[in-house]
Amino acid sequence: MAYSQENIAIMDSIIARYPRKRSAVMPLLHFVQATEGFVTPEGIELIAQKLELETAEVTAVSTFYTQYKSEPVGEYHVGVCINTLCAVMGGDEIYKSVSEHLGIGNDEVTSDGKVSLERIECNAACDYAPVVMVNWEFFDNQTPQSVKDLVDGARGGNPPAPTRGPKTLRTWKQNSAVLAGVSDGLAGEGVSAGEPSKLGLKLSKEGK
């Protein structure tokens, strides 16, 4: 049984946030991923029971959203943006090289379970292109080499820190818990804004 009394209590507190409990489906699915790494049958059945839904209704939701995984992903889930702008600026090359480097393709996991790879769509950081997300943390202005180094670090248990994020890269499960609304207290870490974000402000101060 993956769900301890403490887990159940967290799930109940998630449900309590909403005026109607069905709204808790998505954070609960994030929480299932925080607990088990992916959306398991046990998780679906537990959510269905808690929200008085049919299991099919939970399945319908979990399969709609790409962040919910029906198979295990790596401890470090690497998303390479291959939407047009990032792809053109180097995302395609990055994806190709890291895929070859790891020997895995889209939605696949390394045999040690450490790293998985996904071709992701625009992640709202285009001024930092090419962008790579690891466990949905920003790794800005990447190159094929930087991403190789990144995944090597991750596999060796020593991943680099996100460009704009906490001082230490958290695991897939840990970050899934954040998305479920379970705070890890790391909001204060990292820059308030990256350089491109501040560019207009800087130019304005320069009177431009």
């Binding site: 049958p41 059945e45 049919e54 299991t55 099919a56 209704e57 939970v58 399969t63 709609f64 790409t66």
Partner: peptide
């Protein structure tokens, strides 16, 4: 009142389905 079949997946892969065990 029996939502035992639902639309699953998304886009061109959207399909009618059940929860695997039910």
């Amino acid at each position: 009142g029996d939502p035992f079949i639902t639309l699953n997946e998304r886009g061109a892969l959207q399909q009618v389905g059940i929860y695997e065990k039910d």
